[in-house]
Design a protein around this nucleic acid. Structure first.
Lengths: 105, 105
DNA sequence: CAAACATGCAACCAAACGGTTGCATTTTTT
DNA sequence: AAAAAATGCAACCGTTTGGTTGCATGTTTG
């Protein structure tokens, strides 16, 4: 996992509209583009652009079926972003631990 | 934790330069602005802007001491972003579980 | 076949972003 | 007191972003 790829995932999650889309997808079944575009306060094409950003970051996958396109969360990508933060925290804790040992000497 | 605040955290992490800064801070002790600005491939003032973005998102805290300013990771904010992803995954898994039960009937 | 539906494509626009340069200010060091 | 170090502030600039509108295309449904 390159630094750039991780950054792209976070960037994709770093917008209220896209975050709402992701949350809605985690709540229930895979939704098609039209359904997902509702209640976001922006136009269908506007929503489509945001969804495309999620696709580019692989946060979400598209599955065209007939005249509609289903949108599905990519659990693996979410897991990677979580793993990144976990790794940061691990280094952080390690350092705090070392600092504690040093001050206790 | 508002949706907007979470989005701001992810947005702050969604840039290669800022991600590198965060990583460097997790590796070792708190660094001052000047040190942090080195080896990023951009000017000091450019780096300063990126650090300010991290401050606004509360990913990082500033501690002025004399003529220099120390930069420190905010572990609590990182924990919140991780918690958000964990919650997403939980809902996701719950749904998969429900789906499995349904198909097994 | 015609109407309705779900989507795609492209041009356009204001605002935000990522970066620069130049200069002023405060704190150390010598 | 003078030089050096660390930072702040502000203007500027090209590119990206987040959104719009208008219209074309493929797919169901009646």
């Amino acid at each position: 996992m390159s630094q750039a790829a991780i950054a792209q995932i976070f960037k994709a999650l770093g917008d209220p509209v896209r975050l709402q889309i992701v949350q809605r997808l985690s709540n229930g079944a895979a939704l098609c583009l039209g359904e997902l575009s509702k209640d976001l306060g922006i136009s269908r094409q506007g929503a489509r652009k945001q969804i495309q950003a999620l696709v580019s970051a692989k946060v979400v996958q598209l599955h065209p079926t007939g005249r509609e396109v289903k949108v599905q969360l990519d659990a693996a990508t979410l897991a990677q972003s979580k793993a990144f933060i976990t790794a940061l925290e691990a280094q952080w804790d390690e350092r705090l631990q070392a600092l504690k040992q040093f001050t206790e000497q």
